[in-house]
């Protein structure tokens, strides 16, 4: 009796999620995972801070170097943009994707398979969904910090053309969340680290071809459609629109795209984790 009541109390406030998730999968304690991550990473703060430099280095090289080679590129709606202005929001989107995917695949797989961390966690009242939500939240927290710092650098370099850019941070978080959720779902299908080259197979082509470095008009008409359905293209469109001030109703379409992607990812990840961990 007492036991059941305690469970009920610990579950209070997790409202909606509990109604769709079978009991035992979730105890509303995903925050513990974030706490753990903070403790673990207190010593590895350098690695965390250094993660921010990667996109900034790209941005610098693109701003000063590539920008000299290409003076103007056609931006959203066709208005000419400097190359750095064109590429900066795309890098923001790409780094949101990269960070989230890295955290949700390599990182989680390592803990899952080798560190046996989750086995220990599941011996406590925590359920698989706590783990999923906790890990994704931590990935987002990191990703959010990187995105904010990146936006500040863009501002300093004069690459932000519109106050709409204030919405770029939450948009980047949404993008990261969706990628993290799908990445985590994908991780549950991985058999060994050898499968991770497949993650690269998905991420690198998107990074290179989703209008990150050159406009959609470079492609022949048939290929354009293929590019347009990729999630990174959607993210680049959304963020490029916001930082350059070219915001249309299509942005809502982008947002909906990521909402669906995130929801699918979370549900699949939770189901699969339950199957894998609660044997």
């Amino acid at each position: 009796m007492t036991h059941t009541r305690e469970r009920a109390v610990s579950r209070r406030g997790s409202g909606l999620v509990l109604r769709i998730v079978p009991p035992g999968l979730y105890s509303g304690r995903g925050g513990v995972i974030v706490e753990r991550a903070l403790v673990v990473n207190r010593r590895a703060w350098l690695a965390i801070v250094s993660g921010f430099f990667e996109p900034v280095l790209f941005l610098l090289s693109l701003g000063v170097g590539f920008g000299q080679l290409v003076s103007e590129v056609a931006g959203p709606g066709g208005q000419p943009l400097s190359y750095a202005t064109f590429v900066a929001p795309a890098l923001l989107a790409a780094s949101a994707m990269n960070g989230a995917v890295y955290d949700a695949t390599f990182n989680i797989f390592f803990k899952f398979k080798y560190a046996r961390l989750y086995d220990a966690m599941l011996a406590t009242p925590m359920g698989p969904l706590d783990i999923a939500i906790g890990e994704i939240s931590w990935a987002l927290l990191r990703g959010g910090l990187y995105s904010a710092a990146f936006l500040l650098v863009m501002l300093g370099m004069g690459l932000i053309l519109s106050p709409w850019a204030l919405l770029a941070l939450p948009a980047a978080l949404l993008v990261a969340f969706a990628f993290a959720a799908v990445g985590m779902a994908a991780t549950t299908f991985m058999r060994s680290w050898q499968d991770f080259d497949l993650v690269q197979l998905a991420v690198l082509p998107m990074f290179l071809f989703s209008t990150t470095f050159f406009p959609l008009s470079v492609y022949p008409a048939g290929v354009r459609v293929v590019v347009q359905v990729t999630p990174l293209y959607q993210a680049v469109e959304l963020l490029r629109g916001l930082t350059t001030g070219h915001v249309t109703w299509a942005a809502l379409g982008n947002v909906a795209y990521f909402a669906v992607m995130a929801a699918t990812g979370v549900v699949v990840a939770g189901r699969r984790l339950a199957g894998l961990l609660l044997k």
């Binding site: 590539f66 190359y83 050898q194 080259d197 050159f214």
Partner: peptide, 24 residues
Amino acid sequence: SSAFSTFLGPVLFLLAMGFGFGSQ
């Protein structure tokens, strides 16, 4: 486990930066 990053990755890089970006 490394075929993509060793062989295909560089080719994609060539396509994107050489031809895609290069077109600009």
